[in-house]
Design a protein around this nucleic acid. Sequence first.
DNA 1: CGATTATCCTGTGCGC
DNA 2: TGCGCACAGGATAATC
Length: 260
Amino acid sequence: MRRDLASALRGARVTRVVVTGARTVRRQHPDAFAHALTGARLGTFGRWGKYLLVGLDSGQVLVAHLRMSGQFLLAPSGDEALPAHTHARVRFSDGRELRFVDPRTFGELFVTSPELPELAGLGPDALGLDLGTFAKLLATRRARLKPLLLDQRVVAGIGNIYSDEILWAARLRWYRQADRLRPVEVRRLHAAMTAVLDDAISHRGSSLGDGQYVDLSGRPGSYQALHKVYGQAECPQCARPLERTVVAQRSHFWCRACQR
DNA sequence: CGATTATCCTGTGCGC
DNA sequence: TGCGCACAGGATAATC
């Protein structure tokens, strides 16, 4: 999504902002949000974990999180048909319009200072975390691996799908304690984290049956076809039925034979 | 520090 | 077909 936004909107000038969903812009008054954005030119497009960071020429930053059901959709000039659950619209000087669509309204948008005070406490991004730093981070945590990978304060950017895929690729069980991994296991976990996330991004993400996640043009990703365990019935390695266990209030899929 | 639970919402798919 | 229920990509506050 970051890459899509960057290639479509770098340098675009905001001419009008309409907020129709108060829950979507809830950290600040919608009028203040609209005011901070109107007239700004979009410059840089960053990402920290699951947060999208759009640098504005005003020096401020537009922060977005899609949460469970959020979508960014870019409509061509003249397209007036609004999708259901459109909560915010950002119009550009060339007539195009960026829509934030979000049925469950968990997603959010806000404009803040480049110091990103709202994101204090967010851990380092999972991509770009070197092995040594990752190993130190694990060595200080007693938590089990599945909850640890989901904890954005520890490592930012891994959700329920990818934590399952990463643990399977690393051949590690969800309840292994982070500070008790052997060095070879830490290396496997780090390699799996990097490989799974890189692969998922190059396949443009995972879109499940209800098509919630789509790209800026409304097209689904294709990584779901490569899921090894998430939502699957049997292990692609050993063909045995996968376990499905509730961990940290989420469904976790794992193989009793292949993961230790 | 770590785990567990409830909560914020709407849509979908299932069994009956 | 219609109804009630379980469940869904996430994060956070409260509680133990």
